[in-house]
Write a protein that binds this DNA or RNA. Structure first.
Lengths: 223, 223
DNA sequence: TCAGTAATCAATTGAATACTGAATTATAGT
DNA sequence: ACTATAATTCAGTATTCAATTGATTACTGA
């Protein structure tokens, strides 16, 4: 084999990983899978795409060895193929946020278009919680909360938010967080709370980033 | 703007970075640019592709903000848009090498198909050099050697290798290195040396990795 | 101003990709 | 064996992408 052919073939294979993160849908799927394993159906639903399409994107991700699957009974469960993959996807996001200025602009536009939507970073959260000024609310589904959440956070899945309203005091600031910086759940929660007169802000990131920075997390949901 | 639309748009933008590294040719271009800035013509030549095609790939990379260009006189010089980009490309390569098993297999096949092509890692190099058992040879073009090379390495650009043969002793082991793990220059050099009876091996990586691991490098070419 | 050169742009081709909806496969429960 | 369900595969269509070719732009130096 000629060296040139070898190099060409290697780069072809390297590009597989790149192809994995070259589509918005696949990045979204990876973002969801970073939260924990999912079946194809659930993934399709959460990503808002058809099952067939999801399955095909997953095949691409699997070829790139970014995810792996396991069949149990009727269900095929996909998971990220290791913690390095989560880190890699994070690095794509960070590089993009840092360099692709359109993202910053879009985010600014988005927040100003729905004014009142305040965002808060990890440090601010820690300080205000320490001062007892804030209630931290985890809006993800119960299972994800159980799998790992910010210490002291209360589990209030988005669809149960209205029921939990009475337990929340209006004069206390509420900080909601979800899956990540682009988590629609958290955004909707904050919006809803503000509409009803609560002082509510959103944490800039989700649990993945929290954990990635070495902050403590709590597992389980028993008091 | 709806949260869903925002999320969708953000992921679209994130995917730009992914698209940048989703084509073998673009990965190759980035690999070359990691060595230092280049004009379009030079890039096209080194990558073995047409100028127009190169230019178009560069446009994709620029949209992803992975490279940036500067026009001076007739020439447009491209460079990686920061050290983070080099790190990112490295992380793509590492993830792929680690996970895409086909790469390992291919590499093994390649080396066994041209037997005698020995590869050596950084540690081995350091030890044997310390023992005075090895001559280290940098086969890249002079400018790249000047921009930064392994301490103690001699600059012998590939096309001048035959001229330099007389200065090399046959009973002394020669270790050649080039731009990176897939550097065709280094492979050809080793092959040529072995054909002429020299004991020659290739360093597994190039200067970029050497530097990335915090090892010292020497700049300049005056004795 | 004009010839020459580097780079980009525009138009085109064929190949690869994304998505949909229907057919197919695999498995569980009855 | 039969039905229901999860997932994959397939066929078809629309879109995007890679690469080539030739034209165009931008600049230099005579």
């Amino acid at each position: 084999m000629e060296p040139e052919l070898y190099r060409e073939t290697v780069f072809e294979l390297l590009a597989r990983v790149g192809k994995g993160v070259s589509s918005p849908k696949r990045l979204l799927l990876l973002d969801i899978l970073a939260q924990g394993p999912r079946t194809v159906e659930v993934l399709a639903h959460e990503a808002g795409m058809s099952v067939a399409n999801t399955s095909q994107h997953l095949r691409v991700l699997q070829r790139a060895r970014l995810v792996e699957s396991k069949k149990r009974a009727l269900y095929v469960t996909y998971r990220v193929a290791g913690e390095e993959v989560v880190g890699f996807v994070r690095s794509v996001q960070q590089l993009a946020e840092q360099r692709v200025t359109e993202i910053e602009r879009l985010t600014k536009d988005f927040h100003s278009s729905r004014k009142g939507m305040k965002v808060v970073d990890r440090n601010t959260l820690l300080h205000r919680v320490r001062d007892g000024k804030m209630t931290v609310v985890d809006v993800r589904p119960r299972e994800e909360y159980t799998a790992g959440h910010i210490p002291g956070a209360v589990s209030v899945p988005l669809h149960q938010l209205t029921d939990h309203l009475k337990t929340l005091r209006k004069n206390r600031e509420i900080i909601a967080y979800g899956r990540g910086p682009y988590c629609v759940l958290a955004m909707k929660a904050v919006e809803m709370l503000r509409k009803r007169g609560y002082q509510s802000v959103r944490l800039q990131e989700g649990v993945t980033d929290w954990k990635a920075h070495g902050y403590k997390i709590t597992v389980g949901d028993r008091e």
